[in-house]
Amino acid sequence: MSGQARVSGRGRHRIVRTGLAVLLGAVAALVTTAPAVAGDGPAGFWYGTDSTTITISGGAPYREPVIGGSYGGYVGMLGNWANLTGCNKIVVWSTTDAARAATNRGTYHLGVGVGGYYFMGGPGVDPHYDGTTTEAYAWGARQAAQALADAASRHVTYPVLFADIEIPGHSPSYTPADDNGWNSVYTSPCSGVVRTGFVPVTVDRAVLNGFAGYVTGHSAYRAGVYSAPDIWASIFGSGSASLIPNTYEWTYESFTGSLTHHPYGWCLSGTSTCAHFFGGQTSSSRYALMWQWSGGGGSRNGYGDFDQIDAARTP
């Protein structure tokens, strides 16, 4: 007989179980210690947040709150037309999240850094409203001048400065005018009392033209617009005044209150929820830059505003 020890069936099973336990333990250790794979995609896209502070836990380099992946950028409200006219309303800027985005960009070369938008007022809240496109253009330029001053003080490095054009509804903390003066003319900027319930689309468009012209003429920033297809149509109609083929865009439609599915490109993975742009542009346009996919448009996710940012198209 050989000198090899015999192993009984019972002992053999015990050895197999022990070996399997060791193997599973090793696999578990690998899973526990391996870095998370979560992150944005395809290459060139970054997760980000905007406006209100969302707690970002952990140290640098910082990660996108709640859903994971690298924290790719922050975009905050630079100013509010209602403050330019003395109505004393809020400005939503997170110094904390802006600092984290700046650190990721400046130190770790992650994301796009810090961006800004200006909460725009339409012709109907212009203190000097006279119904002309000339005055509307000047009103847009005055708001742009304030936006540039605010961008300088907040160290905005993202190269596109956004005009926030929306119909906020009854939002007294932000504005005294439910439509921000895009579709109605008010007795005074702060009154909240409608004098005329109509503004020509050409006059509305002149405000945007004044903003964009001043931004590009007095700074290195490019002009962009934050809005959504239905809101855009309700202000500018569907004719030539609505078309902005060479203007950078940030949309907030479609949106969701759920953070279960995350963006990949311009759609939420595993769903039919996708970004829809406006002013004659689509997601395939080189000017389609950002998508606020949760937290905007009245959606609530319990945290704040989440964004998808295409750095490859950023000028």
Rank of each mutant, 00 (worst) to 15 (best):
N209R: 13
N209T: 14
N209G: 06
N209M: 14
G210E: 11
G210Y: 06
F211T: 07
F211L: 13
G213Y: 01
Y214R: 02
V215S: 05
V215Q: 05
V215W: 04
V215G: 08
T216H: 00
G217I: 02
G217L: 01
H218I: 06
H218Y: 07
S219V: 05
S219C: 05
A220F: 05
A220C: 05
A220G: 09
A220P: 03
R222G: 09
A223L: 02
G224S: 13
V225S: 09
V225W: 01
Y226Q: 11
Y226A: 08
Y226I: 15
Y226S: 11
S227K: 10
S227N: 14
S227R: 13
A228M: 03
A228K: 02
A228D: 11
A228Q: 11
P229G: 06
P229R: 04
P229M: 04
D230S: 13
I231H: 08
I231C: 09
I231W: 09
I231P: 02
I231E: 13
A233D: 02
A233C: 02
S234E: 00
I235Q: 01
F236M: 14
F236L: 15
F236W: 13
G237W: 06
G237E: 03
S238N: 14
S238Y: 04
G239R: 07
S240Y: 12
A241T: 14
